[in-house]
Nucleic acid binder design. Structure first.
Lengths: 150, 150
DNA sequence: TCTAATTCTTGACTCAGTCCACAATCGGGC
DNA sequence: GCCCGATTGTGGACTGAGTCAAGAATTAGA
């Protein structure tokens, strides 16, 4: 839905160019990791590894972890880790959205941030910290689990 | 700071009674875990285990994990798990406060919730979930790390 | 005090993630 | 288009947090 305020980057960004722009070498593994994270938001490293392997035939687990780490560092993907879950990754970045997690089945869905800017909340007392992000996880029961659980 | 609205339980609660009231058997291990979590907020399971061992002489790791899990289930302690950290536990419950975590050194401090009631925030779209908690982690750099890092 | 149910101990095991040394690949200069 | 140094990826061992399971010890109600 194109609105009056256009995004700062082109509508369709070439993933290879995206990597180059960030100062990263372009490799088949990194491109495949980027595709996997985009195709399957909130996937674990294992799931990403499986998708990448299905995509380009073979990868080492280490390459997947390396790519996830460096892409995360550069801000091309985001890493979240709800309690009792292994790390999950998503390619939706920059809009500072939040997450809704089901206590029963663990399903994770995105929720828009009502404020929109980061950090979207201000701590009542920052204890001298320089805060750059407020990460919010809403915990509850999803519609499916709500009907099963008492 | 006692205000006009008093807490629902007595000012000083006997820990053993607290366990009994929750329907749990009172054991030396559980009492020691409760003491350890209170004495060292935001400690990991390993740290709790060490404190408990120093306190009552010996415990199995399993007993510590069992106690942390059941005390968490019953709401006597809270479990938090910031990204890239193992689980941490605290006995300050019921006031729905939040946390401030340093990206560099990992130090965790409490921040009061500006709203006070749970869930203190409302998701912009609940996707049909029944939300009972909004967990907020503020990420940044603590005063000490701010002077070291560029 | 006795007894059934709950809890703790011990030790093996799983899973996510990391470390390391060597091989393969990328990409800027010729 | 080819070379070469720097960056990445591979394979395999390893770590740390947490879980499972069977039997021994403890708790609490009769």
């Amino acid at each position: 839905m194109p609105g009056p305020s256009a995004q700062s980057h082109p509508v369709v960004v070439d993933p290879a160019q995206l990597l180059r722009d960030t100062g990263l070498q372009v490799t088949a593994q990194r491109l495949a990791v980027l595709r996997a994270v985009t195709a399957s938001p909130h996937g674990t490293a294992d799931e990403v590894e499986a998708l990448v392997r299905a995509d380009i035939g073979a990868v080492s687990r280490q390459a997947v972890y390396d790519a996830l780490a460096i892409l995360g560092d550069k801000g091309l993907i985001r890493r979240i880790q709800p309690s009792r879950s292994s790390a999950r990754f998503e390619s939706r970045v920059g809009d500072n959205h939040h997450h809704l997690v089901c206590r029963a089945c663990g399903i994770t869905v995105d929720v828009d941030c009502a404020v929109g800017e980061r950090p979207c909340l201000h701590a009542s007392d920052d204890h001298g910290f320089v805060i750059d992000e407020a990460e919010v996880i809403y915990w509850g029961l999803c519609p499916a689990c709500r009907t099963i659980e008492p």
